[in-house]
């Protein structure tokens, strides 16, 4: 199981990374959350917005929401 946050290096992307880290700790996930600011990766997925949340290679959320519960749910569903 692998969680990645892809962004373009903006504050919002950074924030999503921090939120996801918190959630990962809460759910006792062993793997580190990966954070990448390489825009190329986003484009290669066919996505044009950032940040992108990826769980096990699958993009589950595009864009940011302050709704932590929703992010938690998305991660749980896709683990």
């Amino acid at each position: 199981m692998k969680i990645q946050v892809l962004g373009s290096g903006c504050p919002t992307c950074r924030k999503l990374y921090e939120v996801v880290q918190e959630i990962s700790k809460e759910l006792n996930l062993k793997d580190e959350v990966e954070y990448s600011t390489d825009v190329t990766k986003i484009i290669e997925l066919g996505i044009m917005s950032s940040p992108v949340l990826i769980v096990n290679g699958k993009p589950v959320m595009v864009g940011f929401t302050p709704d932590t519960e929703k992010i938690k749910k998305l991660i749980k569903e896709n683990l």
């Binding site: 373009s8 919002t12 992307c13 825009v39 950032s50």
Partner: peptide, 15 residues
């Protein structure tokens, strides 16, 4: 306009 998405948006369109 979201500064986060400007770059992926630009590249995505041009590409």
């Amino acid at each position: 306009f979201c500064s986060c998405s400007a770059v992926p948006l630009f590249i995505g369109l041009v590409e």
